[in-house]
């Protein structure tokens, strides 16, 4: 079976800026594929090229086996799109908006079914501006399903939502996925990418820095734990050099100057000697956090920066 999306050597240039800089990846049919990256990484531009909203400067993109340059209309009929912060008509009810959108497609799902699926059946006669943030987001997802698409593209589906509403949307996305729909989504939330996506593309400044499953991306780091220590006094180079072979100082003296981020292969072996070193030299341990390595660490490793909301 062909890929749901195949992106090959894609470049999008705006003036002298490469918004998308020679990226290639594929999305397999039936998977939830995430594109992770900070604002301005080129995620939305990449999606908009796949959706047919923008044309590529170079490279090729095929969606459901069709070329985006030549078969744009056929592609649009078979995919569903949720844009980042797209509004809908003010003076139509939810039911009426879905019914109208349905007339644009060769086949469409009845509005009550769609609203039921996103748990908005009771709001059918309401207008969009009467809904809460989470309800609005669920509605825009329902609107992307109006043509019963094979591929759904969601651009930051949970941005700006509270944690509860966010989890609610994750449940909805999984539910759509269970109906054999391929899903491509962008996010800048690590937790979302790790929990929801089967495979991930990490983008930074228009470039693709890695594509893999979340588990593989994490195991690539070769570390199991991340340790953050806050000290009373800074460590000297000699003290750092004296750490075990299994300890790597990823970031030194950041935030309030005496905070260090260490990565450990195995905390049962390495953590004790690290603490010994710190106390032996009188650095004064004020605070310590030990966590399993997450995508956050992967991102830091790959791009040299932290993802911030």
């Amino acid at each position: 079976m062909e890929d749901a999306v195949l992106v090959d050597s894609l470049v999008k240039r705006f003036g002298s800026v490469n918004a998308v800089d020679d990226i290639s990846f594929n999305v397999q049919r039936g998977e939830i594929f995430g594109i992770l990256g900070p604002n301005g990484a080129g995620k939305t531009t990449t999606l908009e090229i796949i959706e047919g909203l923008q044309s590529p400067t170079q490279g090729s993109v095929s969606v459901l086996g069709m070329d985006i340059r030549r078969q744009g209309a056929q592609i649009k009929a078979r995919i569903g799109v949720q844009l980042q912060s797209a509004a809908y008509f003010d003076y139509l009810s939810l039911h009426e908006i879905l019914a109208l959108l349905g007339t644009f497609y060769p086949k469409s799902v009845r509005p009550p079914e769609l609203l039921d699926q996103v748990d908005l059946a009771g709001q059918a006669k309401m207008r969009l501006n009467q809904l809460s943030g989470g309800q609005k987001q669920r509605f825009t997802i329902a609107a992307s399903l109006v043509n019963s698409p094979e591929l759904v593209i969601l651009d930051e589906p949970t941005t700006g939502l509270d944690p509860l509403a966010r989890r609610n949307i994750w449940g909805l996305i999984r539910q759509i996925h269970q109906q054999d729909v391929t899903i491509v989504l962008t996010t800048h939330y690590m937790e979302e990418a790790q929990n929801l996506c089967q495979r991930l593309a990490i983008m930074d400044q228009g470039r693709l820095v890695a594509v893999d499953t979340p588990a593989n991306l994490i195991s690539r780091l070769g570390a199991a734990y991340s340790v953050k220590v806050v000290l009373a006094h800074p460590l000297t180079d000699a003290q750092i050099a004296a750490f075990d072979a299994g300890v790597e100082v990823v970031q030194g003296q950041f935030q309030d100057q005496n905070t260090y981020l260490l990565r450990l292969n195995d905390h049962s072996k390495s953590l004790g000697p690290v603490l010994d070193q710190i106390s032996k030299n009188g650095a004064g341990l004020e605070h310590m956090e030990v966590t399993p390595v997450t995508l956050e660490d992967v991102f830091l490793e790959l791009t040299g920066k932290e993802l911030v909301d």
Partner: peptide
């Protein structure tokens, strides 16, 4: 301004 046109553009509506 509110991206409604953009939303229409991702449908196959000519």
């Amino acid at each position: 301004n509110s991206s409604i046109l953009k939303r229409l553009l991702v449908t196959p509506l000519p």
